[in-house]
Design a protein around this nucleic acid. Structure first.
Lengths: 236, 236, 236, 236
DNA sequence: AATGAATGAGGATTCATTCAT
DNA sequence: TATGAATGAATCCTCATTCAT
């Protein structure tokens, strides 16, 4: 007497997929990745375990899909911000950019809990196609957003937009891990105030480090561009 | 060259401990952490599984011990380099520092394969004492090496030594993950050259990013220190 | 006689459950509980280890299920006997009751090997629901069979049926342990005939002890009921 | 620089043994047998693990030794009580005997926590000599105390003293298990008052059951002895 | 397409006991 | 005799994934 809902049309299938992703996202807000199993996701999505595997070949693909969406949204958010900023006078631009980036990735963002495992876990057990599509999506965003970014800060050389995003990404990986210590480490920090130097505050460190990088490039590029009369913004 | 069956004296015990660590290190060079279990380590060290647990209460403690040693050596290597550089003229110092840091952490260093899991895995299942001691060791190194570092580059403010090391650490976490892609990702890069933008080269990215940060700070500090007559190198 | 690969209908699932229980029972006749692990049961039932855990959450629940069935059958067997006896003249009733009880629980009965561990082992690692259901089943049997039992022997007071069954149960626990000595104890008895006084013969001891209890109650109740004119069979 | 205490004389060895037993007893009052390991015992006794095994070949032998002592004391206590009672007029004797037995074995007695595992655990892993000595000790106590017991109640036949003690022992095994339910069972009783019928109160059940047995024997023996003129107190 | 029963690899840890020192 | 380091058997249960229905 089970009412079986069957997704026959592509549209329905996409919807089903979304339901699963939503369920996984909900769980991901409650507890860390390694405490979530497929049975939980299926139950939360109101379907059978096997059904989940019809839409995602492995547990990692499912969560990488979430990461993928979040990355995409991140890129889009950056695009919106950068598009607004592009063309503004230099000094203000830097601060606005940094401010935007900092606001965009709050410590409680989903991405913060996924980024640390993208390389070490999620990408370890996925199919070739999924891997390729993910990387292609990233590349597209990287280039599009990177180009926009370069327009925000005139002193940047061509290619530094992408590089900036990659470094930023590396910093997110690092800072997010450092900012979310294990319970025992939290306890250590609680009982040993002196150690709290190592207890990173994500947003502050993130913004400061990005600022330093930009300022560093500005100086480097100025030095590099100044001497000769010819302006080559393309890095050799 | 007597093979001791039983480690009775503290010295022998330390030696035994080292044997286990060596075995684990050997394995760690062969395959990633999550493919190594205690049974493997014991077999490689030529002893029983239970013996390993006499010296390390959990798998995580064992590998954190390795990480701890490596961190310590890293700090020491930095200390040696920085001690040499301290007092040199500014411009050369920067390059020598960066060069040293870059050479110190080769992409095949053990630390590179451990750092990505220190926070996400190793620190998750260790005892309070072990956790505290680890953090205290880090703090000591951080402060000692940070102070030395500040002496290398005169334009740095007090405290930026430690901050630099922390940011550097975050970059190592991030870049090392990005530089060691999963097999499937490697394949994707092979077949899609366009995607290789995202295939980080650890050493280069690492050095460049650190350089940018230092140059950024130099500019920031100059701007900050210049205006008023009072020189306060202490950051407010 | 189709061998079902997957039990989908409740009926099939019940069957599967029974298969597991049967396998466990077979093993229980071969060797004691603590020499049987889930892997053995699964192998004997011709299925994977994990499958057993689909039907029984812990090893203890599995064996408590067996015990539960056996208890139920025991109660039913008693019911049948007592129903026959109820209404018979007193003297014969006692002997028939004792005879029935004695025949019902042969020294090789499964229950004999389970009862000694019900409290000390099986009930230690089960879920609340399982525990509650087991106890409720026991209570129901206890009260139903206890009431029937009281009808067999007119001199019994109300409530003594249940009490009798509980005491009987205690005696079964005790006597069954004493009657199934460890190998080394058997050897001791073999070589030291004088010690055989302690080598209980289950059935005989069991019947004799029950007889004594009943006769004791008869005497007690007679003394209690005689003096006054009012007959209160309800114990105060 | 360790001060080594060596027990060279038999007297010292006995003392050592006692230290171990005391440590084990202390622990046994804190937590159940299966939560006590040899390392705990050794630590509590202030000696090395290996030393414990010099005095007791297995963990079971150690705890059986405790049981042995406790049994011996139990017998002695009974002897004292029975010696006092022997020769008293019949009616009072029964009550005094029962009272004494009941007071002798409080629900918190060490024996109560050991008796349930004597047969199922302790006797399973001991040496022949230890097993034989234990049983011989029991037999001696059984016969001595049994004989004394028979003198307390004139209506008893020869041999019923020993039988009584054996049955009593069976009841202790059963009742003590029933009286010490697992945590989950306690919870079940708490939430389901109706089930508490099965929650045995050790002392009360124990005394009542023993009383019934004695009264039953009295009646049986009276019936058996009355008819003929010849008095045979020896059971055929 | 959906189900959910079946699978079975996988893995850390304990601890009684032994034995080299 | 005492030590405590070394041993290694023993073991449950989870859960991603498969596949019969």
């Amino acid at each position: 007497m089970v009412i079986e809902k069957r997704a026959r049309k592509p549209e329905q299938k996409r919807e089903r997929r979304t339901e699963i992703l939503s369920a996984a996202i909900t769980l991901l807000r409650e507890r860390p990745y390694n405490k979530i199993n497929i049975a939980d996701v299926a139950r939360r999505a109101g379907m059978a375990k096997g059904t989940v595997f019809l839409y995602f070949r492995t547990r990692e693909e499912l969560f990488l899909s979430i990461a993928s969406c979040e990355f995409d949204q991140w890129f889009q958010a950056m695009d919106r911000s950068f598009a607004e900023i592009a063309g503004t006078s230099e000094k203000a631009a830097r601060d606005r950019v940094l401010n935007a980036l900092s606001n965009m990735l709050k410590p409680d963002a989903l991405l913060i809990s996924l980024i640390p495992i993208v390389h070490t876990v999620l990408e370890q057990n996925i199919g070739y196609v999924q891997a390729r599509d993910f990387k292609q999506m990233l590349l597209k965003g990287l280039q599009r957003t990177g180009a926009l970014f370069e327009q925000c800060l005139p002193y940047l050389h061509r290619g530094q937009g992408v590089t900036f995003l990659l470094w930023m990404y590396a910093l997110v990986i690092g800072f997010s891990q450092m900012a979310a210590p294990a319970p025992v480490i939290k306890k250590v920090f609680q009982k040993n105030p002196a150690l709290r130097v190592m207890q990173i505050k994500f947003s502050a460190s993130y913004a400061d480090a990005l600022a330093a990088i930009l300022d560093g490039w500005k100086a480097q590029n100025a030095a590099q561009d100044a001497p000769g009369p010819s302006r080559r913004k393309e890095k050799s």
